[in-house]
């Protein structure tokens, strides 16, 4: 699919939403919705996406949309999918419809993990998209279990003793894959082609599918609005956010960055890591992060090559 062709289909998510200038998730929504062939029904967890796109009486959604709470989008969409299955079985509806659940990393990695796990285990045919912006941005930039180590957030502040978040992020994609669902993948809105292709596979999957999509939050990351795409790309290039997929249990790397791109370079683009560079550079801490990223990458490469 070439981009100009993609633009032929109207986007079911329109402007007039109130996300910050240069926000990443509207791009994620656009790429995913363009990949859907059937009409979609969207469920959304509480978070930036929901509050900026549905401020009454204005909605940016041109498809059926529901939000009910923060931790339960997987359960809410389970119910919609169950309603569909029931009405279809009764012959009261005949169309093919695709069900999408959107949740941020707070609503997915943390508070919504149980509902997500339940929905995956039950096998509802839905595509769950985590728009991962690495923190609780809607409430004013708090750490989540997706926040990278070292990041300065309002609940993991860069203090005099403790330099930002101490923990490494939870490997949610692997946790999801462990449910044995037909399709799970990690992608980034900076790589539209990768994301589009994966969204297509997710929609076609025979059962639940999951997409973990890195979506820049320029406010929380401390980046210039125009750099939204570049900074997400940096996460991919540095191997901190590898692109891969798990199709019917088979792990496959989607992209092998050609050049060595140090995590430090990616971190230095963002205000949330400034304290690790100024007034003086925290060499040991940054090195630790680099070696963890390297180790995780090697583990992933091993996993993927062992499978092929």
């Amino acid at each position: 699919m070439a981009l100009p062709d993609l633009a032929k289909k109207p986007v079911r998510f329109i402007g007039g939403h109130r996300a910050c200038a240069g926000c990443g998730f509207p791009i994620t929504i656009k790429i995913i919705l363009q990949a859907a062939e059937n009409p979609v029904i969207v469920g959304c967890a509480t978070g930036c996406m929901e509050v900026t796109s549905t401020i009454y009486p204005y909605t940016s959604w041109e498809c059926s949309f529901i939000h009910s709470a923060f931790e339960n989008v997987a359960a809410t969409v389970s119910g919609i999918e169950a309603a569909y299955t029931s009405l279809k079985r009764q012959g009261r509806i005949d169309k093919d419809i695709t069900f999408i659940a959107f949740g941020g990393d707070g609503g997915t990695y943390d508070i919504g993990l149980q509902a997500l796990s339940g929905a995956l285990e039950r096998g509802h045919k839905m595509v769950y998209v985590c728009y991962d912006n690495q923190g609780y941005m809607n409430t004013g930039i708090q750490r989540s279990s997706a926040t990278p180590r070292g990041a300065n957030t309002t609940t993991s502040p860069a203090g005099k003793k403790v330099p930002g978040k101490q923990q490494y992020p939870k490997d949610l994609t692997a946790i999801v894959a462990a449910h044995g669902i037909p399709y799970a993948a990690q992608s980034s809105m900076s790589h539209w082609n990768d994301l589009y292709r994966k969204a297509k596979k997710a929609f076609a999957a025979d059962g639940p599918a999951f997409l973990n999509v890195l979506s820049t939050c320029r406010l929380g990351w401390g980046t210039a609005p125009e750099d939204t795409v570049d900074v997400a790309d940096g996460a991919v290039q540095s191997r901190l956010w590898p692109l891969y997929e798990i199709e019917k249990g088979k792990w496959k790397l989607s992209l092998k960055p050609r050049r060595h791109y140090p995590v430090e370079k990616w971190m230095s683009m963002q205000g949330r890591f400034r304290h690790l560079f100024n007034p003086q550079k925290n060499e040991t801490f940054i090195e630790e992060i680099q070696s963890q990223v390297d180790a995780k990458w090697e583990e992933l490469v091993r996993r993927c090559s062992a499978e092929t």
């Binding site: 029904i41 469920g43 529901i66 009910s68 709470a69 931790e71 339960n72 997987a74 359960a75 809410t76 969409v77 389970s78 119910g79 919609i80 169950a82 309603a83 569909y84 299955t85 029931s86 009405l87 079985r89 149980q114 509902a115 796990s117 339940g118 285990e121 039950r122």
Partner: peptide, 23 residues
């Protein structure tokens, strides 16, 4: 369609989703 949810929170959430879906 019986949804054997993993908690009561999800029980009512799924019921809400289904009721809003038109079932």
């Amino acid at each position: 369609e019986y949804v054997a949810v993993e908690s009561e929170h999800s029980a009512l959430s799924a019921t809400i989703g289904a009721a809003a879906a038109g079932a």
